[in-house]
Design a protein around this nucleic acid. Structure first.
Lengths: 192, 192
DNA sequence: AGCCTATGAATGAAGG
DNA sequence: CCTTCATTCATAGGCT
């Protein structure tokens, strides 16, 4: 998480211009929205604790209104944020998905999220949208999850052949070291 | 791009041990991936000879699996590599083409600004939320290039005033220009 | 001692 | 929803 020391512009106004190196002649202050830490915190709060994944327009409006207290923001920023966050979470999971998962349907995982589930709070129901499917709010935990879905075709052997992707000898290294145990060096789920 | 004479930890097993010092201000087990020469060679082989530009997830998995023979690597590394490589190739080309392109432009080299596309489409307003797909409505929103625009800019976007936005303790945010850190009374719960 | 550059990583914004 | 483009931050390592 916490990427080094990235402080995204305290207030939605000036750019950081950390004086990194080459002088950007660009006068225009970053065309794109740079969320403040507070905004990010709230967004994540909504995402993980409230289970908000794809807010409706009305929700976006409300969220946006709130976030305006912490910096400049528009509705589309909120919209994109949720879209991106969701997409990337899933994408990363896909990357790490085992190419040849041996275990399918592991009997039981114990579900260490017991405590996590407690996150659910008042949250009420706003607009009755989707009734919020409240996924597991895993935030720091790696995406290990693994087994969960049957992973359809991806499991076992990959049949998709895009042509020998490289002429060099391609031998399937059988299960190298899938550091499922070393959760620390896993995928990190970088947020923020 | 030219000095590729790097011979990093050839061995895939020896981790760089990110946490070299326990003194890390921010624990960021980050030592970023440093591709080995073999990995780079294969990646370039794929890129230039095989024409792989944006591999699919399955391709990434396979490539990653292969590259593991030459060093530690994860799916996201492959993903980023292709993304970056492609982007930078294009970036360079854009620079070069600027020199002798039919379009007369303010020549002026040395400018890092590649000419922001800046397409303003003047959305007018995205009124009918419910009826319209929000995607469209947000997309057409003009990019209010910040500058002196007041935070409320948005050009007559949000007019609705929702009393409560997430049904949680929604205090009528009264200009909290002071310490934002304490304003966690948002949902009445703190995060992290 | 450090700058500089190439490049890995992250993410906002769109497109489809 | 998923993929792609862009811009930017951060950093490893070579060069001066």
């Amino acid at each position: 998480m916490e990427p080094q020391t990235q402080q995204p512009t305290e207030d939605g106004g000036s750019n950081k211009a950390a004086g990194s190196s080459a002088n950007m002649l660009c006068r225009r202050s970053s065309t794109r929205w740079t969320p403040t830490t507070d905004q990010i915190r709230i967004l994540k709060e909504l995402y993980y604790n409230k289970g908000v994944r794809s807010p409706t327009v009305e929700q976006i409006q409300r969220i946006c209104l709130q976030l305006k207290r912490y910096g400049k923001i528009e509705g589309k920023n909120v919209f994109y944020w949720f879209g991106n966050h969701k997409a990337r979470e899933r994408q990363k999971k896909r990357f790490t998905s085992d190419v040849h998962v041996p275990m399918q349907r592991s009997g039981l995982v114990g579900n260490g999220n017991a405590g996590v589930i407690a996150f659910n709070r008042q949250m009420g129901n706003y607009g009755g949208y989707g009734s919020m499917n409240m996924e597991k709010s895993f935030r720091d935990c790696s995406i290990s999850a693994g087994g969960g879905t049957s992973s359809t075709g991806v499991g076992g052997s990959i049949s998709h052949n895009f042509g020998s992707w490289v002429s060099c000898s391609v031998d399937p290294y059988s299960s190298s070291s899938y550091t499922t145990s070393t959760s620390t060096t896993f995928f990190g789920l970088n947020e923020e």
